[in-house]
Amino acid sequence: MTGPRQLDGSRRLEDFLAFSAEATAFTVFELRGTGQSQAYLNTCDGIVGTEVTDCLLDRYDAARSAVVASESTLPELLRRDILSDPQLGPVARNIAKMWFVGVWYELPRAWTEAFGAREGNATFVVSTQSYTEGLLWPAIGANPPGAKAPGFGSWAHPPRIPVFP
């Protein structure tokens, strides 16, 4: 349970979750609650490769450390260091979309032209669970179509849209 690889693996997952919380404005607690963290990290690794993912997480880690002494906010640093990066930007955006929709979207052509085609880089639903766990639904006080039914007559009332910081 506590071998060095395992520790690395869980540290990686922690960083992925922290970055994902930044990407979605949901808390790490809420992200864990979807049960999809490992599946999304694996999907990202599986398509772009662990080195690219690690590079993204390193940049995120660096930005998080730098923000203490910086005049910029973390979102500003992320925009400068990750979202504007031709390789990491599209991957970061895909991670955000994956959390909201449960879908890995095919990377843009410009990305594959610059950094090489990747096997499996097509648009696909990560899993049947990832569809029902899409954050898009709680973000608007709704349920994913075909799942998590809120009960007879619930639709007659105003939506309960959660407040977030």
Partner: peptide, 27 residues
């Protein structure tokens, strides 16, 4: 779904701004 992809790809939204956009438009 397309609102999410549009917000991320075409509007450059991420994080809090993204979630706020989804909340305020989709609803």
């Amino acid at each position: 779904d397309s609102t999410v992809t549009d917000a991320v790809a075409n509007r450059g939204l991420f994080g809090t701004a993204l979630r706020e956009h989804l909340r305020s438009t989709l609803s």
